[in-house]
Design a protein around this nucleic acid. Structure first.
Length: 573
RNA sequence: UGGGACGUAGACAAGCGGUAAGUCAGCGGUUUUUGGUUCCGCCAUUCGCAGGUUCGAACCCUGCCGUCCCAACCA
């Protein structure tokens, strides 16, 4: 407890770490053990990372350990595939749990014995009330004249005072499968007048004939969260059980079960869950996006799932950096997605190789280029990392440039290509625009013409004249065709869940949030492997998608570069 | 005539009775062969509001206001 090694390594500090420190100092606990308890009924999203990053980090910082425990007590929706996906995603973010992998379903027998213990103590009883009756007896909330919700005290179930022996017998027969689904429950005997609804004799067990993905048909009664969770924590010797705010109302119950079962006194501490603008962080909502085909599956790069972020090109480092920046508190908060994007840019800027690619191609013809000549030019792979080295790029008399980099009539402050103006072709030559070709029928610019200054090879002018603009390009004869998938936020609204009455939030999904375009890339892009990240100069960061085929790489735009020109344009408009 | 929490800048968030950190966003400028990056400035006389205690209050007390959560045999 006076061990200096117990101090947080990274200097992270928040109210939970304060509590942990106090608990160690006071001797309440001798060491730290946390847990991350996902239910295997869906994919992990970035909201979950806040929770498991916290529990794993706190454990590590205080020299303890963190268990991965699957909270699999509802066989209806759980499946092994989710277990596998969850494990894969946690590892991806960089956490390992070694031998500490547990399943609440492994505790079914022990939990049953705890329930028997509570029955013997007169603290639990078998109830014959139906679910509707239970709800009614619990006390239905009614709006008063000020429309404030109030809840009258509940009434005792007529079965509440059954004798211990009868309860024991009935509970055993529930387990044996003598009663139909839903016909009886085991309830904790606490206080039907308690102001906290959770304390009004919560259900501990329900009868449900459903095959469980791990224990099969061994059980037809399954424990409820409120009973199972504290005892699972206790059995694992969890000291600090960290969970989100909505469980605050359950803490008295959590403590009650542990106390009455005389189990290890785990401490539950709640914190605010993560919300991010322009997206939704709820399994149910994400599930709907998938099932209604609004996205291309759980790993669609627009999804906030870890598999989606990974496919989008997010790195574990960027996600962890994000988590370290959002802080930890009990205030309900909505983090701007710009912060997440900033973290990605910052990470990729240091690590991603640069490459040139043109996404809205326009032909550039260098009129004074010696016909048939091809030159190999040197290019830096990453100006932020000298060790990344250099590469050669072919240059010739016909190039692809970005359509946005030419203007027939330049707007104010535009310093790209327009008739009479000079720009530098990155790593190439300084060229001067001599004209352009236009389709007389459509008015579309079909090619831009220019001359190059042979003395500026590499981009430097011997006379040191300054050229304001530098644009990217790809040699037409050497370009590899690429597909680029450009993503925008899934929702146009900062808070997609807050829709006007009568509007289905699903209808607000931006159908144009995924845009597929064809373009041209420099030759090195043909050799990219799935998952490789590049910065396409002046455009953004792109990650090779597994949909790529030989000769046809597909790139997902992870995030665009900051674009101050776009801001100027916006102001001018 | 319910219970549990939370209110510090546009968004997060430090602050723990001694006179408002930091980050993102935004704005202005610097550097730059990416309108990227870097770097430098600016951005809360005030902490939901009103009283009170104190030499001194974002921090303590009282009242009020606002927001969130709770009425699954889900977790």
């Amino acid at each position: 407890m006076s061990d200096p090694a117990a101090a947080p390594a990274e200097g992270a500090s928040d109210f939970i770490r304060e509590f942990v420190k106090e608990d160690l100092a006071s001797g309440r606990y001798a060491s730290v053990r946390t847990r991350f308890p996902p239910e295997p009924n869906g994919w992990l999203h970035i909201g979950h990372t806040k929770a498991f990053n916290l529990s794993f980090s706190v454990a590590r910082e205080f020299g303890g350990s963190c268990n991965l425990r699957f909270d699999d007590t509802n066989p209806e929706k759980e499946d092994q595939s989710y277990v596998d996906a969850i494990k894969r995603d946690i590892r991806w973010l960089g956490y390992e749990w070694g031998e500490n992998e547990f399943y609440a379903s492994d505790y079914f027998e022990k939990l049953y014995q705890y329930a028997v213990m509570l029955i013997r103590k007169g603290k639990a009883y078998v109830d014959d009330l139906s679910d509707e009756q239970i709800r009614e007896y619990r006390g239905t909330a009614v709006p008063d004249r000020n429309n404030i919700t109030m809840t009258p005290p509940g009434r005792d179930s007529p079965w509440r005072d059954r004798g211990v022996e009868e309860n024991l017998d009935l509970f055993a027969r529930m387990r044996e499968g003598e009663f139909p689904d839903g016909s009886r429950t085991l309830r904790a005997r606490i206080d039907m007048a308690h102001p906290n609804l959770n304390m009004r004799d919560p259900v501990m067990y329900r009868i449900k004939r459903e095959t469980h993905y791990r224990v099969g048909d061994a059980w037809c009664i399954y424990p409820m969260y409120d009973f199972q969770h504290p005892l699972s924590d206790a059995m694992e010797g969890i000291t600090h059980s960290l969970c989100s705010l909505e469980f605050e109302n359950h803490r008295p119950l959590y403590d009650w079960f542990i106390r009455e079962c005389e189990a290890f006194p785990s401490r539950q501490i709640e914190f605010a869950r993560l919300n991010i603008t322009y997206t939704v962080l709820s399994k149910r909502w994400l599930q709907r996006l998938v099932s209604e085909g609004l996205v291309d599956g759980w790993d669609d790069p627009r999804m906030p799932t870890l598999s989606g972020l990974r496919r989008r090109g997010y790195t574990p480092e960027a996600v962890r950096d994000f988590l370290s920046r959002i802080g930890l508190a009990k205030t309900n908060s909505m983090v701007e997605i710009q912060l997440l994007e900033h973290c990605l840019r910052e990470d990729l800027n240091k690590r991603a190789r640069r490459a040139m690619a043109v996404l809205k191609p326009l032909r550039l013809i260098i009129e004074n280029w010696p016909a048939g000549t091809v030159e190999q030019l040197d290019a830096v792979n990453n100006p932020e990392d000298e060790s990344a080295g250099t590469r050669r790029i072919p240059f010739s008399g016909e190039l692809w440039i970005e359509r946005d980099d030419f203007a027939e009539v330049p707007p104010p402050k535009y310093f790209r290509l327009f008739p009479g103006n000079s720009v530098r072709l990155r790593y190439g030559y300084i060229v001067t625009c001599t004209g352009f070709d236009k389709d007389p029928a459509t008015g579309e610019i079909t090619a831009v013409r220019c001359t190059h200054d042979p003395d500026t090879r590499g981009g430097n002018a011997p006379d040191n004249r300054k050229v304001k603009g530098t644009i990217h390009w790809v040699s037409a004869a050497h370009a590899v065709p690429i597909e680029a998938r450009l993503f925008e936020h899934l929702f146009p609204n900062e808070r997609p869940m807050e829709v006007p009455a009568g509007v289905d939030w699903v209808s607000t999904v931006d159908r144009g949030s995924k845009q597929v375009v064809g373009g041209w890339g420099e030759p090195c892009l043909a050799d990219a492997a799935a998952g490789d990240s590049f910065q396409f100069e002046r455009l953004g960061y792109f990650c090779l998608d597994p949909d790529s085929r030989p000769g046809k790489p597909v790139f997902n735009r992870s995030v665009s570069l900051r674009d101050s020109w776009a801001k100027i344009e916006r102001k001018q408009a």
